[in-house]
């Protein structure tokens, strides 16, 4: 179990990480989610022992890790771009940790190491790639090799620094699922830092949101996603807009929810359909279309809702309203979040 207590990292006078508390239980994957410059990478490097602490402690179980150098912590690091050793073959990269301290592996040891490398390459879906040089691999393959290399070290904790961010969208989804499966199957404890909420949701089971050096919210991914701690967190988590005051009350009323001073709404919280002029009192909100953009999955609208103002909404595919059309909005209560009152001040 990793515990981080009041950890502070400074560059110059300003703390990059300011008294952060975190815990990762054995077998869990915690994602630290934050925009660039939030201090999440410094936090990761501090945990790895690569950045000196200005205050606080990093502990594994009950041992304080102060003064324990990186290579004795048993925390393997996986970087955004893999950081494979370009002068070694894929097999030598993966086997790097296995050969440590055993400069002259006996025949048995060497065979065991080769078997293990093959197993790991198999696990990450790269069987038969052993003799290739890292430069000849694609970005996704390189990340898989990096993962296999980290797993070979049998780390107590796997530290992942934006492991999927350098990949294109499709690959990111696929490798994210693989990563999740491999980590779960191996029961690996992992700490992931990323600015990409998709990456965090794909891989982690717990989430800590970091901003300006501090953790502003943590919990399970579902909890954090459903109840963002404040407006900025909500926007960062992919909520489209923050509504306050009357606007918030109007939307909540349409969803049959008790009034609250502020809410965050996702784009998909408001589903638009054509307003029927014969319908006297339609359930939900009425609105006028301002802008329309069709995507393969849905029609994205910006509408001016009566009593609410400008909000985002989605329309059913195959129906293309024009600006100026009147629409009715149905509110999906599961896709909006009530913000705690203190956060809106």
């Amino acid at each position: 179990m990793l515990s981080v207590e009041r950890l502070t990292v400074r560059f110059g006078p300003h703390p990059a990480v300011d008294r952060v508390d975190l815990r990762v239980d054995d077998g869990h994957v915690l994602a630290v989610l934050g925009p660039s410059g939030s201090g999440k990478s410094s936090l990761l490097r501090a945990v790895a022992g690569l950045e000196p602490l200005a205050g606080g402690r990093v502990r594994w179980d009950d041992h304080d890790l102060a003064g324990v150098p990186t290579h004795r912590r048993g925390f393997a690091l996986m970087f955004q771009d893999g950081q494979l050793f370009d002068h070694l073959t894929v097999a030598r990269n993966v086997g790097y940790a296995l050969r440590l301290g055993l400069d002259r592996l006996d025949r048995q040891g060497r065979a065991a190491s080769r078997r293990r490398v093959d197993e790991l390459l198999d696990l990450v879906g790269l069987a038969g790639y052993g003799e290739r040089l890292p430069r000849t691999l694609s970005g996704g393959e390189r990340q898989r090799v990096a993962l296999a290399r980290s797993l070979a070290a049998e780390p107590r904790l796997l530290l992942l620094d934006e492991p999927l961010s350098a990949l294109d969208a499709e690959l990111r989804v696929r490798l994210g699922a693989d990563l999740r499966r491999i980590l779960t199957e191996a029961g690996t404890t992992a700490l992931l830092v990323t600015h990409d909420q998709e990456e965090a949701f794909a891989v982690a089971d717990r989430l800590a949101v970091m901003r300006e050096g501090s953790v502003v919210q943590h919990g399970t991914t579902e909890e954090v996603w459903a109840r963002p701690a404040d407006a900025a967190t909500a926007l960062f988590l992919g909520y489209a807009r923050i509504l306050e005051g009357d606007a918030a009350r109007a939307v909540l009323a349409a969803a049959d929810r008790p009034p609250a001073p502020a809410i965050a709404v996702r784009r998909s919280a408001l589903a638009a359909r054509r307003a029927d002029p014969l319908e006297a009192d339609p359930r939900g909100l009425t609105a006028t279309v301002r802008a329309v953009r069709a995507t393969p999955d849905e029609v994205r609208l910006v509408v001016d809702a009566d009593g609410v103002g400008e909000v985002d909404a989605v329309g059913a595919p195959g129906w293309l309203p024009a600006p100026g059309d009147r629409v009715v909005l149905r509110v999906d209560p599961a896709r909006l979040a009530v913000l705690p009152p203190t956060a809106t001040a």
Binding site: A48, A76, L77, L84, F85, Y96, A97, A146, A153
Partner: peptide, 27 residues
Amino acid sequence: LDRRPAEAAAGLGASPFHVLRTVTFPA
């Protein structure tokens, strides 16, 4: 020289001398 390959090696358990020999000097 990018610091991160050396850090990755340290994360895998390589001592500073080993990192120097297997990662830094080849580069």
